[in-house]
Write a protein that binds this DNA or RNA. Sequence first.
DNA 1: TGAAATGTTGGGGCG
DNA 2: ACGCCCCAACATTTC
Length: 474
Amino acid sequence: MPVQPIIVWFRQDLRLTDNPALVQAAAADAPVIPLYVLDDRTQGQWGIRGAARWWLHRSLQSLDASLRDMGSSLLLRHGDAGQVIPRLVEETGATAVYWNRCYEPRVIARDSRIKESLGATGMEAKSFNAALLFEPWTIETKTGGPYKVFTPFWRACSSGAPPAEQVDAPKALTPSDPMPPGDTLDDWRLLPTSPDWAEEFGEHWTPGERGAQKSLDAFLTDRMASYPEGRDRPAEVLTSRLSPHLHFGEIGPRQIWQAIDRRKTGAEKFLAEIGWREFAHHLLYHFPAIPEENLRPAFDDFPWRDDADGLKAWQRGRTGYPIVDAGMRQLWRTGWMHNRVRMIAASFLIKDLLIDWREGEKWFWDTLVDADLANNAAGWQWVAGSGADAAPFFRIFNPVTQGEKFDPAGAYVRKFVPEIAALPDKWIHHPWDAPDDVLESAGITPGETYPHPIVDHKAARQRALTAFKAIRTG
DNA sequence: TGAAATGTTGGGGCG
DNA sequence: ACGCCCCAACATTTC
């Protein structure tokens, strides 16, 4: 008599270790159908796009390979998950569907409907926590509301019950026999072709659970001790580079939490960054409009400029400000940007160009391999000053000062803006001040080989402060 | 997880 | 010797 299978629906949890939904299914002594659904409709404009699709392709390949090592494999289906899941249940006679929770508003709505309709037909539909140390509804202020300031939020997280222990990968999975038919990964065309803008990505990244674990191990042994100072220097690899792995759930925060010895140098500083990720998810859950709307309504009246040329120059890394251009080109070439440079580039778009932060958010959404709705929205609103615990609007980065401070030797700029690489350190962050003979011997013709600055920072700063006065109350 | 303007202090040059 | 000015260097305030 055939045993009825259990479906494990993978989403942003593309790993076998510390995966409670998978463990629960494996423990049931029934065949397991590991499933991934490419659902391009549910999340609307915030579906998986651009660089993240490249990552997804590679990550699914990796997950499938790991499952095959256990005698199983990953079933691929596409379409509205609200239809795909019930159809597969019917097809296979599955008795249960397990998954790990996501916290994006439209995903929550979809998953609730699925859970309800499966439940109504007597199915067991269960969800688990794999993505967060502390789920958003478990942390609240003394008065019972959500936190809007990071420091007390993280203090509350750290002082309460510790996060749950991670769970091991299942020892074995009983495959479903026969395996239901599915798509092949290539059918989904997740990889770019003409042009192949992801050409270089593979040199920088190893998507998948093994790559994630290796990144964590290397960070803990080689870099965490220098993290408190090193994390602001983009020229070298001194951060963990775990963000895309975390977004796709190739590693979970519990695994990081447990791998870190909190007594070691750099541990608290690094964990606080995991804390910011938790905080962003907390905010998105409690304020689900933050990807589209200012958290602080006063910003609804902000006089943003319409500037297609400025936006394009920023996107392409042709603003004439070397540190900004280097960042934007690192993003385009590698699918990632160092966090210090993200702040500088974002400040430039918002404050020097006075372009709506949502334009930056959209661009990052398409170009980052770590594009994450909660982190992206919270990060942009933080820089804009429109968000929770945000930088005050008048905190305007000077791209020259920031460059000189955090890329003093200009190595980061030279790597990504090669046309000015021959400039001496003295001028590398402000080529427009260099004497003609210096420019000439560096092979630079301003306005031709490298753009003139598209705005004058000093004037742009004044313009931004004036614009800000327009919305300031009192 | 700023920068710029403004204020203060103290040393040195100089008449 | 003294006052005056200049201007780093640092601190404080403002945006």
